[in-house]
Write a protein that binds this DNA or RNA. Structure first.
Lengths: 211, 211, 211, 211
DNA sequence: TATGAATGAGCTTTCATTCAT
DNA sequence: GATGAATGAAAGCTCATTCAT
């Protein structure tokens, strides 16, 4: 689907507000004001608030299934190297789409979520990811590099959950580490690096360390 | 603060609904109906919807400062054993207070959160936790059992984040592992055990494994 | 169903406006203003505009099935006398419920009508009426007083249609007959009498006159 | 006034929708879609929704002044024959313009009707009709064929009202007579014939029968 | 001429809250 | 203390119309 300049303007405004205040906590009027457009334009372009949300997911959703296939097929990388590449790719994605990531994290726990179009998209993407990472780990296991018994879903939850936690509570991290005066982009870089190292260590340990 | 029977009834209803539908997604009418009380009672008892939320946190908030002091001072346990005890204590807490935990997870990412009374409570509790676990780890480091460079905030984020992720998306886990027919209490036990093992392995690895 | 004073106040306001401006041409705001109540009260009491309409029909609908049974069973009246009594009863009804009568006349020709609760009520009442009058006419036919071939549906249409036409266009009648200065209640009496005579003549003619 | 092909297209679409859903119940968007033209065209061509309605009446209005003069002057017909010819002419008119007829029936009972241009047109036409029929009846009375005391306005109301009732509630008639499976054109023919016979009988009776 | 885009006003309904008893 | 009734504000959405091209 293609979106016009104005539609993107609205979608981006909605993204910011949904991320900050939640879907229910954001009124269509808020979005109109944030986007600097007439209230009626939103219904005009998207039909309804819910359809706008769907358009947002349609817009950003493509990034969910981040291109793991290429990495997996690459024979020059060891299984662990591939894991590391994937971790960095994932981190890169969610940091460049922080707003959207927050929305997804929020929406995942909603009542109506299971019934919605969006839910299906996310579920499918998650399953796909899981399958691909599953293949990767099996490859490592066959080569004798990774441990036998790996709980892949829990591994992914650790990856998603930790990143989630960091993104949604980064101000805590900032406070605790006394980095209030560090410019934001620098701070982002900092925590991306930290998170990358942390997750890689975590995965390496869990995949190769014999408990 | 003490709450009457009826007030608790309302608080519990609100807890369920806030957890399921979010704060903004829950109307005072919904709560009144869920609690089986008159609509006006809620404003009458709590003053406002927001005050009700605060009462809920006041009620459940005790859970945050989970009793770590005793564990830390216990000389019969090794540092790693203490960590394990803490992990289990934490898991036990959040699983027995799943609803409240979801609410907290949600509210953490909200706009108004930083400004609220609740936010201060959580922040303080987190800092406390971090200090205590910090002490614990330092103890292990002094004894030469734990690695030197440990990013404690990120470790905690992993613990919180993973548990969070599991609790808020347990239906995914259920689907993926084909456990739809398992009774809920049994399923809860199952994932608690899995999570416990997973986190312990994770911590042991990260704390003792030389990368 | 019982309605409170305030509910009746609203229903009556709605009745006036629906009759004058049509259902779609009347806004809930209009009704609130006409009834002198707060806008939100209408949803509070009736749930929605449509439900209010149903309440109106529930309220007035009882009058539709005007008590013909008693008349029919009365052995002291000849069939034609019975017809005359019914005509007067019908006229009395619709003149005392002019507003409601207009609403019904309007709604009968609406698209959504066939699907609504109201529609079912009206249809049933009409069928009932038709059956009863059918019996009456058959009685007269058996006694050799009425003609054999009578198209009852068309007879009723003439009765309903003529009365309808008079009620909805009484101002024309007033203009044409130069009765602008006659007080309204007197004018009402006048046209009721005229209509009564007209319909009775019509029925007598059609039922007894051999074409 | 002359209307272009596209304008007629819009007018016809509006006619169908106004007849079915009422003026207020029809949105300009609905009309645009039904006519298969751009939304803005309607305002562009007609100025406003109300002006479109006027154009519709301007277009169809000719139907009202149905050509009675010729009939009246025709010396080969008896007064009763002339009445019968008029009845058939009237029936033919309204059946070929059912949609428009419904709209008129609706609009007659509207608030704004009395103030509108349309209203004046209809009123004039009605007066004209009344005068002409009045002449016809007087002719019959002079010849001793018709009764003396005839309430012409009520006679016309019976004619208009019965036809009206049949047209707007023809589905009832269909149901009651179990003609659901009869093709529509055949059904139309059927009720036209029935109505014609009914009205002629009615008029003959009322005009010649001594009550 | 023709139209996609845009708009302010209005719609019905629900909100959290307060009033009167 | 407890509650049905009431309310102003705001919600999401549609309206007829106009603008810019």
């Amino acid at each position: 689907m293609e979106y016009s300049e104005k539609q993107l303007q609205i979608i981006e405004a909605a993204e910011r507000l949904f991320a900050t205040n939640g879907y229910e906590g954001t009124s269509v009027r808020d979005i109109a004001q944030e986007a600097g457009v007439n209230l009626a334009m939103i219904s005009y372009y998207f039909g309804s608030k819910e359809k706008l949300m769907e358009a947002l997911f349609d817009c950003r959703g493509g990034y969910i299934k981040f291109t793991m296939e290429n990495v997996i097929k690459n024979d020059e990388l060891s299984p662990l190297q591939k894991i590391n590449v994937l971790i960095d790719a994932y981190i890169e994605k969610i940091f460049t789409q922080q707003y959207f990531h927050r929305i997804m994290a929020r929406e995942q726990m909603s009542r109506h979520f299971g019934e919605s179009v969006i839910s299906v998209m996310i579920t499918q993407a998650k399953k796909k990811n899981q399958e691909l990472i599953g293949q990767l780990i099996q490859e490592g296991q066959k080569k004798g590099i990774f441990k036998k018994r790996i709980d892949i879903p829990l591994m992914l939850m650790t990856m998603f959950g930790t990143a989630n936690q960091l993104i949604t509570t980064q101000h805590y991290y900032r406070d605790i580490n006394n980095m209030q005066d560090v410019p934001d982009d620098e701070f982002q870089k900092h925590i991306k690096k930290k998170l990358s190292h942390h997750l890689k260590t975590l995965f390496k340990a869990i995949l190769t360390y014999e408990a």
